[in-house]
C-alpha cells in the first residue's frame, strides 16, 4: 500500500536520504532501524509531508503523494506519531485526542474511536481531564499514539515510541503496538531499539547514513551477523 522509490531529501546542501526505496504491504508492520542520523525520522517526515523530497516518489494506495501537503496526507489516512511524543502540553488528554480527529467531521465515528482509544489505554480514560503536560513520559507516549489513532488511520507511522521510557514501559508500548497491528492497522515503525522492533515487525530495513544497506524478514535480520554486531550489541 505504501511504496517509496529512490527517495532523496536534502537539508540545505546536506543530503539526508540518498535514494531510499522500500515498501509496506497491507497488514504489515515494517520497521526502519538504524543509528542516530541514519535518516529514519527524515523518511517518516517526508512521507507525512513535513519535509519535501528533492527526488523520488512516494505512492500510497496507488496515488502519488510526494508533493501533497501534510493536511492532505492526513486526510488520505496516514497518521504520524512524531518523535518525542509532542502532545499539546496545556490541553487536557481529551482535548488532545479531539485534536487528533481535527480533519474528521463524523461526530459519531470520533466518539467511537475515542472510546476505542480509552479501551486500549485505560490510564488515559482515568486521566481524561488532566492537562497533558503533567502526564508521565509513558502516558504521554500513549496519548501521542492514541491521538494518532483518532485520525482513524489506514497507516500508522511511529517515530521512536520507546525513546526515553523506562524498560517496563517500553515493553508495554510494544505490546500495544502489537495489539494495534493485530486489530488491522498497518504500521511503519522507526526505532533505535532494534531488538524489540524486529521482534514485533514482519519485515525490516536497515538504514545507514541515508541509504538502505540491508532488508529482509525481521527474523532473518535478527540473526544477521551485521545487524547483531551493529545494533543488537552481541
Amino acid at each position: 500500500m505504501l511504496n517509496i522509490e529512490n527517495l532523496q531529501v536534502h537539508y540545505g546542501r546536506i543530503e539526508a536520504l540518498k535514494g531510499v526505496s522500500f515498501s509496506l504491504a497491507e497488514g504489515e508492520i515494517v520497521t526502519l532501524i538504524g543509528a542516530n542520523g541514519a535518516g529514519k525520522s527524515t523518511t517518516l517526515k517526508t512521507i507525512s509531508g513535513l519535509l519535501r523530497a528533492s527526488a523520488g516518489k512516494i505512492t500510497f494506495m496507488g496515488r502519488d503523494i510526494t508533493t501533497l501537503r501534510p493536511s492532505a496526507i492526513v486526510n488520505m489516512g496516514i497518521a504520524h506519531v512524531p518523535e518525542g511524543r509532542r502532545v499539546f502540553p496545556k490541553m487536557t488528554v481529551e482535548e488532545n485526542l479531539e485534536m487528533g480527529a481535527f480533519v474528521r467531521k463524523d461526530q459519531k465515528g470520533i466518539k467511537e474511536d475515542m472510546d476505542r482509544v480509552f479501551q486500549t489505554f485505560p490510564i488515559l480514560k482515568e486521566r481524561r481531564t488532566q492537562i497533558a503536560g503533567t502526564l508521565s513520559g509513558g502516558e504521554q507516549q500513549m496519548l501521542a499514539i492514541g491521538r494518532g489513532l483518532m485520525t482513524r488511520p489506514r497507516l500508522l507511522l511511529l517515530d521512536e515510541p520507546s525513546l526515553g521510557l523506562a524498560p517496563i514501559l517500553v515493553e508495554q508500548i510494544f505490546q500495544i503496538i502489537d495489539d494495534i497491528h493485530k486489530q488491522g492497522t498497518p504500521i511503519l515503525l522507526v526505532e533505535q531499539n532494534a531488538y524489540l522492533a524486529l521482534q514485533v515487525a514482519n519485515r525490516g530495513y536497515v538504514l545507514e547514513t541515508g541509504s538502505v544497506v540491508l532488508e529482509g524478514d525481521a527474523k532473518d535480520l535478527l540473526n544477521n551477523e551485521h545487524v547483531k554486531k551493529a545494533y543488537l550489541g552481541e
Binding site: 507525512s48 493536511s71 506519531v81 499539546f88
Partner: peptide, 20 residues
C-alpha cells in the same frame, strides 16, 4: 480556535494532525 491553540502549543504536532 482549537487549530490556533494547537499551533501555539506545538507546531509540528499541529501539522501532523492535518492543521494547515
Amino acid at each position: 480556535g482549537r487549530a490556533l491553540k494547537a499551533i501555539r502549543e506545538d507546531q509540528v504536532a499541529a501539522e501532523v494532525m492535518g492543521i494547515n
